[in-house]
Design a protein around this nucleic acid. Structure first.
Length: 279
DNA sequence: CGTGTTTGACCAGCGC
DNA sequence: GCGCTGGTCAAACACG
């Protein structure tokens, strides 16, 4: 069984299901549209690798044996959640603005409570990635500041909460390890970046043309894939497989977190190495 | 000194 | 209504 607790428990307004062929239309849209939906820049002069082969040269699809702790095995879950109007990031009015902060930190309780009330239940579109890696915080081109950590029910591993360090950006991500397979890191992104990546600060800019950029560095996992990555992945798998329904995963309801059913074959079977499916 | 992490407390939502 | 849980805050701390 592979039942990431995160993907079930977290999505109070959305849960996860496998994408059907029709769902894949989401990914068949124009790339820039998809990216803009999630705030990922498509600046062709940016430092982000953009080709699947560049991003994940060791995609387990073709390298099922690459089951090292830093392999780029990835499962994807996508969730789109309605975003009420008061979302600071959605309106790009950034709650991190000094003015906003002063309001939020105002001692009087009523404004604070009202503000919190206005902001509650705000959910951004989410991506969840399952990445086989021995490091928790995967490089994705953005800088993150940890703002919390919680023990997760039914999991021995804590969940970490990160926020984009860009003061105008309210994108968050959660990182936790799968209780089923500790080598699997479940990363959930929420929100849209309102800025571009900063490259890969700690390792320098990864060169997209070096097919060994990810595989030869056991301590450097692949940059965390962005939606573009998965669209490419999807398309490539579509071409290579006769898979009728790509198993990208999308959240729809709270209690249907079928982020993965690793025992199933098909696309997922290609994405997830056998050893990962059967620990 | 600036930036990021740790960690306990707090709050809201949800199920019973 | 109550308790549980997830998510966030914020002060203290660590580090370069």
């Amino acid at each position: 069984m592979n039942d990431p607790p995160d993907l079930r428990n977290d999505d109070d307004s959305a849960a996860w299901r496998e994408l059907t062929a029709s769902d894949s239309d989401f990914f068949d849209r124009d790339t820039s549209t998809i990216l803009s939906d999630f705030g990922w820049s498509l600046d062709h002069s940016s430092d982000h690798p953009r080709n699947l082969s560049d991003l994940a040269p060791t995609t387990t699809k073709t390298h099922p044996s690459s089951t090292s702790s830093c392999s780029s095995s990835v499962l994807v879950a996508v969730t789109e959640v309605s975003t009420p109007t008061t979302n600071p990031s959605a309106t790009s009015s950034s709650s991190d603005d000094p003015a906003d902060n002063s309001a939020a930190k105002t001692p009087p309780e009523t404004p604070l409570k009202e503000k919190k009330k206005a902001q509650k239940r705000i959910r951004q579109p989410r991506f969840a990635f399952m990445t086989k890696s021995d490091v928790d915080n995967l490089e994705d081109g953005y800088r993150w500041r940890k703002y919390g950590q919680k023990a997760v029910k039914n999991s021995p591993f804590p969940r970490s909460y990160y926020r984009c360090t860009n003061s105008r950006c309210t994108v968050k991500k959660r990182v936790e390890r799968s209780s089923e397979d500790p080598s699997i890191v479940i990363t959930t992104y929420e929100g849209q970046h309102c800025h571009q990546t900063i490259g890969f600060p700690r390792g320098g800019i990864l060169t997209a043309h070096d097919p060994h950029s990810f595989t030869s560095h056991h301590h450097l996992p692949p940059p965390l894939p962005n939606p573009y990555y998965y669209q490419e992945l999807l398309h490539q798998l579509h071409r290579d497989n006769n898979t009728p329904s790509p198993r990208l995963l999308q959240s729809t309801t709270e209690d249907a977190p079928t982020i993965s059913n690793p025992s199933e074959e098909g696309l997922l079977g290609d994405i997830v190495p056998q050893t990962m499916r059967n620990p």
